[in-house]
Design a protein around this nucleic acid. Structure first.
Length: 427
RNA sequence: GGAGAGGUGGCUGAGUCCGGUUGAAAGCGCUCGACUCGAAAUCGAGUGUGCCUCGCGGCACCGUGGGUUCGAAUCCCACCCUCUCCGCCA
């Protein structure tokens, strides 16, 4: 959510930002609602002031034994009026606020202007793209050959885009989660959190998934929704709080399963693990002072990148352009890992600075140097997507005989084994 | 699921029966000042948030939402949450 007072004074900037994002929002109607809202509030406040004064007098008169009858009758009318205005005011305020929730964040000045994915800007390449002496196979073939990925049964017991991991596949998944969490807690200074995998509507609104992206979520009963990322529960950890200045910056890391309906991506990535309704992810979340959030974005990116460097997986980093930027983000770096079978890089992490956009929605503040509450800046990034890391490992570490070498750093998490070989007696 | 207790400012905690100048006592904490070589103690002043307004100032907020009333932290209704006990359960 944007600071409405700021929007009022910087309407041009906001409209320009919306244009660059290729987003349409009816700003005019929000301004009209705001105009009426303020007018009515002034009227109501005036009447209430009058009523408060009269009520004080009535109290006094009663104490002195005078008859307040006439004033009471008069105030009955005023109260009636106030009641009606308040009802209208509440409606106005609600629809005004509701519409405000549909305005995306304003991109940071360093964000490149562009239409979409094609205009994202490369900022870094790391690692050498592996060369194979044989045609590299896609991960689903490798995984099925090894008996560690079972797509058919995933579809049978749930639906398409669900996969069962078995044996060393399940172990590798678990090893990746442990490896990532250990790295971020022990070496990068994040506090580990194990959050609920369902949250309420308020939390979903706080980070920006609702109201706009309702179709992308799985909704459960009792006002609960399955989280699409641990960003949601972890960022909302401090919703409605005022943090002491010394507490900042706060770094959290969390493993969670993530659930996404993938509505509107029907033809995309239908095979394999790339696009699943349920996947695992280790998330990084930061709460920072507004003055340092862009420095923190850089280190967040480094912390996420380190996962791939230690796994020795080639990657590149791109800055998302205005047309590709997510709704709540002011600036985003995507980390993309090399996928040999597709001969391209695929997103494995997204690191964003939301500035105070989420903090306003979720009401997360800190007490500044002068003791005044101000909104924090929130950031988050995948550190990293586990399912896609599995894809990258299976493909980049594949051998001609169909086995997969286990990256060095993962071996301690896998009982010292160095290779995934076909399981005996696969059923 | 059943029974009971409770939700007040940064914290502790009064006020709620018998509605009135109580945004809210008192204490603690915090800030500034005085005293002091300095500190402690002591004394003095200050110390919630949001909205509207150029400003003066006004309005709102005592778990949430309604209601009664000229007026509600205080009365009525519904809901939420926390704690204790019982039942059930991984």
């Amino acid at each position: 959510m944007l600071d409405w007072k700021w929007v009022r004074e910087n309407r041009k900037t906001v409209e320009e930002a919306l244009y660059q994002r290729r987003t349409k929002v009816d700003i005019q109607s929000i301004f009209e609602l705001d105009e009426e809202r303020r007018m009515l509030q002034q009227e109501a406040d005036g009447l209430k002031a009058q009523r408060n004064e009269a009520s004080r007098n009535i109290g006094k008169m009663k104490k002195e034994g005078a008859d307040p009858g006439p004033i009471v009758t008069q105030m009955q009318k005023v109260s009636e009026r106030v009641k009606n205005i308040d009802i209208r005011l509440k409606e106005l305020e609600e629809s005004w606020r509701e519409r405000l929730l549909w305005i995306p964040n304003v991109p940071h000045s360093s964000v490149p202007i562009g239409e979409g994915e094609g205009d994202n800007v490369d900022v870094k390449h790391w690692g050498d793209i592996p060369e194979f002496s044989f045609p590299p196979r896609p991960h689903w073939e490798i995984g099925e050959g090894l008996g560690i990925l079972d797509f058919e049964r995933g579809a049978k017991i749930a639906s398409s885009r669900f996969t069962v991991l078995t044996g060393q596949g399940a172990l590798l998944e678990r090893a990746l989660v442990s490896f990532m969490l250990d790295l971020h807690t022990n070496r990068h200074g994040y506090l580990e959190v194990f959050p609920p995998f369902m949250v309420n509507t308020q939390a979903m609104t706080g980070t920006g998934q609702l109201p706009k992206f309702s179709d992308d979520l799985y909704h459960c009963q009792d006002d609960l929704h399955l989280i699409p990322t641990a960003e949601v529960p972890v960022t909302n950890l401090h919703a409605g709080e005022v943090l002491p200045l010394e507490a900042l910056p706060l770094f959290y890391t969390a493993y969670s399963a993530c659930f996404r309906r993938e509505a509107g991506s029907y033809g995309k990535d239908v095979r394999g693990l790339i696009r699943q309704h349920q996947f695992n992810k280790v998330e990084l979340v930061k709460f920072t002072h507004p003055d340092t959030s862009y420095q923190e974005l850089e280190t967040l990116l480094e912390d996420a990148s380190r996962v791939l460097e230690l796994l020795e997986l080639p990657y590149r980093v791109v800055t998302l352009c205005t047309g590709d930027l997510g709704f709540a983000a002011a600036k985003t770096y995507d980390i993309e890992v090399w996928v040999p079978s597709q001969h391209t890089y695929r997103e494995i992490s997204s690191c964003s600075n939301f500035e105070d956009f989420q903090a306003r929605r979720a009401d997360i503040r800190f007490r500044d140097e002068r003791g005044k509450p101000r909104f924090v800046h929130t950031l988050n990034g995948s550190g990293v997507a586990v399912g896609r890391t599995m894809v990258a490992i299976l493909e980049n570490y594949q051998n001609e005989d169909g086995t997969v070498t286990i990256p060095n750093v993962l071996r301690p998490f896998m009982g010292g084994m160095d290779r995934i070989v076909p399981r005996e007696g696969v059923v």
